[in-house]
Amino acid sequence: MRHPIDRREFLRLAGLGGVVFASSLGTAGCAGTMSTAKDGGYDDFYFVQLSDSHWGFEGPPNPDAKGTLKKAVAAVNSLSEPPDFIVFTGDLTHTTDDPKVRRQRLAQFKEIVGELKVKDVRFMPGENDASLDRGEAYQEFFGKTYYTFDHKGVHFIAVDNVSDPRALIGDEQLQWLAADLKQQPQDANIVVLTHRPLFDLYPQWDWATRDGAKAIDLLMPHSNVTVFYGHIHQEHHKMTGHIAHHAAKGLMFPLPVAGSQPQRTPLPWDPAQPYRGLGFRDIEAEAKKAEFKLTELPVQKA
């Protein structure tokens, strides 16, 4: 039996160069399994995750610091089929001790991503945006730092683990999370969006959330939970029990694999492969199956 062409296959056939298939969870191999699709298309959808654009950063790790985010915006705008919505999982701007400069960077960032053709864009802060003023400037531009929304049968929860500089979600927000989860059926399709890893990825580099285990405990009773986050500027896939955690690439500089070098310094820019290690992802949601297919995309077409 022939497999019908799914949307991702379509993207590839449509000549969107440089598509890299996320295979760490072995899902890429089953791209053709949607054999029950009816005439007239699918009831699934897709969204795009961008992360760690660090607007305002300057330095050798990215000689195109002022151009990379714009290229990513153009790349998203040129996707053959527009996503239903876009999420930014934090570190929109690079940190600064000056509250005025922080606001300038947030304003410039907002202006640049205002060029996105898809207007449904959800933001989250990273520690670079929010940890020095407990999210005050961030909220002036983007509103609440934790919230929920629903889309085609999927329940999205944005969790803030950065406004407290100690990398705490905090009891107040955890109570809010518990109350929200109570409203959800046990088998609801739940997606958590956050900046830092909720599990201890590598605390030696601050790749953790101090009370992240409490959030995971609250999520555990739910059978369909997937977490998308940023912070570590590279792809990473990890299971805690049945919960999948997917870290996204950044859009300013890639960071080394945990513990692969003594310091957590950015990987050097490679002139032979500009924008290497940077990118964003396309997340295909099949609401009925509570399954996500990840496709990693480059900032620039090859």
Partner: peptide, 18 residues
């Protein structure tokens, strides 16, 4: 040899505080 670090975000330069 083991790392210790500052895990409270303390400003521009925090990342190198270890």
């Amino acid at each position: 040899t083991f790392t210790f670090l500052c895990d409270v975000f303390c400003g521009s330069g925090h990342e190198s505080m270890s």
